[in-house]
Design a protein around this nucleic acid. Structure first.
Lengths: 147, 147
DNA sequence: CTATATAGGACAAATAGCATCTTATTTGTC
DNA sequence: GACAAATAAGATGCTATTTGTCCTATATAG
């Protein structure tokens, strides 16, 4: 019931880019260095974010990453789901066929409520807000693992 | 970002027990058979639920499981957390030491909101309600994996 | 043409999830 | 006390996922 490392990295990456001048191209190396993300791993993550229409990747010399949209139109939910897939709390929500009586199962409705609440909260957080509050260099996102 | 199988089994187990006459002792085998839970695995799960004060385990012949409290005083959240540990969405919520500036990090506050909302929803669902809506034999809880 | 980037597939180590096996222990009944 | 019916608990194994790394290919600016 928790974020993967990859999703955390994705959030850090978009957060870093949100703080740069709009439409600027930022090299993967710069991001990975500043946000403590393994460079090659960030490459894979960036591809997923690109496929989700969040950023674009420019190849070749002077290439790098560029946000595809303004930070205020990007939210936490879509960044996370771009990397982890759609958030769901249990199997039966995801594949109703495997649940024999979802329409009348009380547990089912709780899952659904919990899931939609969670997605709502994450969907309401856009990166303009996030980047404005988190201003200082490296420490703009939580950096786990030192513990 | 999803329930483990063990947590799903725990929910099914408590749900089954909530439907039986209060304070009755139910053998593990009966529960595992009726709710499609591997018997030995249920043994482990029952121990966790017992440690959490949700049920008690009676050893020996005619032994089995018995709810320690009335179904209305048991909620989804505690059953899940008994098995999975406390729900948290990312590392930095769990171990604030590893997060260098949690008080001022905007992302941090979103995690906290999402987490508390999720726990609230699950905490509001008690097993009296759940067992009343889910009445029919086997199919009282979602049974994944057939898909 | 060359230097600088990313692309993308293969691979590997670590961890977590999902049990199962085996042996021991507890308890009720005859 | 002996036996049968249950659970307890530790060890073990299999699989999938996560978290990367490596290597070769490809794209682009100058």
């Amino acid at each position: 019931m928790r974020l993967t490392r990859a999703a955390e990295y994705a959030v850090r990456c978009v957060l870093y880019m949100s703080r740069q001048p709009e439409k600027s191209v930022i090299s993967r190396k710069e991001i990975s260095r500043n946000m403590e993300i393994p460079d090659q791993f960030l490459g894979k993550i960036a591809q997923q974010l690109a496929r989700a229409g969040i950023m674009e990747i420019l190849q070749g010399a002077r290439g790098g990453l560029r946000l595809f949209r303004a930070p205020e139109s990007i939210n936490l939910l879509e960044v996370i789901e771009a990397v982890m897939g759609e958030i769901f709390l249990n199997d039966c929500i995801m594949s109703p066929r495997s649940c024999r009586r979802s329409p009348t199962c009380a547990v089912h409705s709780v899952w659904e409520k919990a899931r939609s609440g969670l997605r709502q909260t994450l969907g309401d957080a856009d990166f303009r807000q996030l980047s404005m509050t988190a201003l200082e260099g490296l420490e703009s996102a939580c950096i786990p693992g030192d513990d």
